[in-house]
Amino acid sequence: MPQFGTTARQIRERLRESDRRFSLRQVARRVGVEPAYLSKIERGVVAPPSEATTVRLARELGQDPDVFLAMAGKVSSDLQEIIRKRPKLFADLIRQLREAPDEAIFRVVRVVRDGDW
């Protein structure tokens, strides 16, 4: 998944232009991995990290964890659990929405209901 590493590096380096705390070493420390390992991830030398590390890295870089997991070829464990509980329902739903435009999907996304207050 070289795209994962390349994208992560590009975002980190863009943030580092205005904030030194986004150096490889400091980001690695906050994410909880060795700098050398993060470097290998960014260069695509090793496979993308575990789900937990990928989510921490996404949050550290201000990115959506699900998008980062998808780039890493993974689906978050909470989503897997949701599908496992009602596999047919969610499989059908996802397949039906496969080609739907974003605005159509937003119409089926659950919204926070505003009431009378």
């Binding site: 863009r14 943030l15 232009e17 205005s18 904030d19 705390r21 986004f22 400091q26 906050r30 949050r59 550290e60 870089l61 201000g62």
Partner: peptide, 17 residues
């Protein structure tokens, strides 16, 4: 102020750097 608010948020959220 940072180029992105995420960076500032992380700074406040993550402690000393």
């Amino acid at each position: 102020p940072k180029a992105t608010t995420q960076a500032s948020h992380a700074g406040k959220g993550e402690g000393p750097c």
